[in-house]
Design a protein around this nucleic acid. Structure first.
Lengths: 316, 316
DNA sequence: TCAAAAGTGTTATCCTTACACCCATGT
DNA sequence: ACATGGGTGTAAGGATAACACTTTTGA
């Protein structure tokens, strides 16, 4: 049993616990004026990160305090994302364990500021809000290059597997685009050598989109994936909204996250029928059309329903 | 980047990465003869755990190797659960980061053996397969004791909040029981002092169910919660099944995990219509009735559908 | 008057739930 | 014969998707 990873089970000999470096990495997002943004450091090359410290009760508390100090705004929601501990991440100082978190906040100011960067500058293919079916970056740049990658597979079976994978990830052929496959798409592009971080990348085939240092763009993609999935069964969108808002603004925020346009009437019905919001009584001009009623999030739903949240009515 | 590290929040300005102990904790489960079981150590007092070692490419690989060595069976599925790093977990050796994993395997032998323990010996209230509505442990032991806890709240508002929380967690009043709230229920019982691990526990009020050392029962409850949630949208049940099986066996396995009886006809339709399985052509006697057709999991669905899985038709 | 966005109503379709019933085997 | 579990069909209800249309503002 000594040569098993876990060492001795059941006997309290914790003596051999290896000591490793521990750091936190944060994916903090907000939505400002219909643009989803993420907090970055170092001119967008890194996500904010730093050593784990003992001074806080929990990592969550530490993250709250730190982001609030940085941005001046409360973090409405924090959730652990993933812990990375691959030996490949080891630095000169030895093995490093990186614990990543997803955090949501509202109010960044009206536009992406210095440290806030648009999600889609890192993942342009994830924004399909303005694409018409059969057009856009995926069709024009990604599909053909993936086609070449498919063709390079060894043997029919391998090529078939590659085609299937490409089709599922990017909604090619008759398949539907699934917003929550952000990570799978990133990994596919990585393996196909279409992004600069990849060792197989060739400069002339690389797809648009800013890279980040190390695996930070990969961590960011897990963050987006998690948020896109979460939004469908838990009312977390409201952590990104101001106190009161119009249904149009709410829809724009969801669309910004999902990267998809939503069906207006059905979106409204879904939100109102589920009693997620209540009218404040006020209205909001400056909409370019008829003034809209303002609503606020009914916080009570967080207690009433541990399950169930904001479903997305399909695109269009 | 330098001024964006988490380290700068405190006023002492150290920038060194703190070195901590790192350990793995595993929730490895299987289903044997309709009983969901979990691998334990130390007579059920601990989950298997041990120091993180450098010799494997990744933690996942290490866990695979270790469990396969221990049980002689392949781990079909491994997923990271959560990373705990609260200072409260520190031992004499300093702060410890515990990375927990969920692992699924089939074939344990026909009955729970020495190291394998029934889930529900730790969480008797989570097994409602044989309860009739209005009966069972929850109604008889838990509801009244939670009622007392509700009554001890300070002021009407606090008591109302407590009542709501109890009702949602345990499906009291008109509310439905939600199988996936395992962790929330454990935490509520903890806070109400109804389980022995709790500092507020009084021996005569404690609810049935074996305790574990430290926070291992809490970790186990996150494992069950994750598995119950996952089963609804990803076809992971099949990792717990033998190569070929009858639909009745499959249903029994799902019921064992969910802790709920399922509607037979609808369960079968759901499974077959989604094309999750294909008939092997063989049949199986020893059912006590008409011989059943055998099926195998259609592994291709894992490639075809990254989303979508085994929905649970409601109880009964 | 027209564009633009808010807001209402209705219908077709699909999925879930529930119920009723038949089939093949062992005792 | 009947108990037991396997297996099929179908109708009711609810949720979603799609479409058509009205209302209220500013330019």
């Amino acid at each position: 049993m000594q040569n098993c990873t876990f060492g001795q089970i059941g006997h309290d000999g914790r003596v051999t616990v290896e000591r490793v470096g521990a750091e936190l990495v944060a994916v903090v997002t907000a939505v400002a004026a219909g643009r989803p943004v993420v907090l970055t450091a170092d001119e967008g090359r890194h996500l904010p990160f730093g050593p784990l410290r003992t001074e806080h009760h929990s990592m969550q508390a530490g993250l709250h305090a730190w982001v609030e100090h940085q941005t001046g705004h409360r973090l409405g929601y924090v959730e652990q994302l993933y812990t990375f501990a691959d030996p490949a991440r080891a630095t000169t100082g030895g093995r490093v364990v990186s614990i990543s978190y997803l955090g949501l906040t509202n109010a960044v100011g009206d536009r992406p500021g210095k440290a806030w960067r648009d999600w889609y500058s890192f993942f342009p293919w994830e924004d399909q809000r303005h694409d018409r079916p059969g057009e856009g970056l995926v069709r024009e740049a990604i599909e053909p290059r993936l086609g070449a990658w498919v063709g390079q597979g060894d043997g029919t079976a391998e090529r078939e597997a590659r085609r299937l994978r490409a089709d599922v990830c990017f909604g090619l052929g008759e398949r539907a685009w699934s917003p929550e496959l952000v990570l799978q798409r990133y990994e596919l592009l990585y393996e196909a050598g279409l992004i600069p971080e990849s060792p197989m990348a060739s400069a002339d085939l690389v797809v648009p989109g800013e890279a980040m240092a190390g695996d930070h763009r990969r961590i960011l993609s897990t963050g987006l994936a998690r948020l896109r999935a979460k939004i469908q069964y838990h009312p977390v969108v409201f952590e990104l909204m101001p106190e009161s808002f119009t249904l149009g603004q709410l829809q724009a925020t969801v669309e910004a996250l999902a990267g998809q346009a939503l069906h207006k009437q059905n979106f409204r019905r879904l939100v109102t029928q589920q009693e997620l919001v209540e009218p404040t009584g006020e209205t909001h001009g400056e909409t370019g059309g008829r003034p809209a009623r303002m609503y606020r999030f009914r916080r009570a739903v967080l207690d009433e329903r541990q399950v169930a949240g904001t479903k997305l009515p399909r695109t269009r």
